[in-house]
Amino acid sequence: MQISKETVEHIAHLAKLELSQEEFSRAEQALTDIIGHAEILNSLSSKGSPTVSANEFICSRQNLLRLDTPGASTPKEHLLENAASHDNDYFIVPKTVD
């Protein structure tokens, strides 16, 4: 299946990515190739298969529950210090449009 320009644009938009022209054509090709290869999955049926997480077959854990006891929070400064824009109390972004 050839991945169309519109599809690549749509996906880039969903993923909040902007591609240069060169990146765009390479992406188109790469996606077409790998999706083409993935067509091999078509011979499988997912009908009636339960919706499980990807590692549910290999990870036998269940009911891992943490006690509701408060633990130490990270000091505010440590959380903020890697941020590009903050005012020592809040993270700052340009005003969102609601």
């Binding site: 599809t7 996906i11 993923a15 990515l17 390479r26 992406a27 996606l31 999706i35 993935a38």
Partner: peptide, 16 residues
């Protein structure tokens, strides 16, 4: 980088 972007897009596509 481009490889990362391509894989993000592949994944986004597969889940879309």
């Amino acid at each position: 980088g481009s490889e990362v972007k391509n894989r993000i897009m592949l994944g986004t596509f597969a889940l879309s």
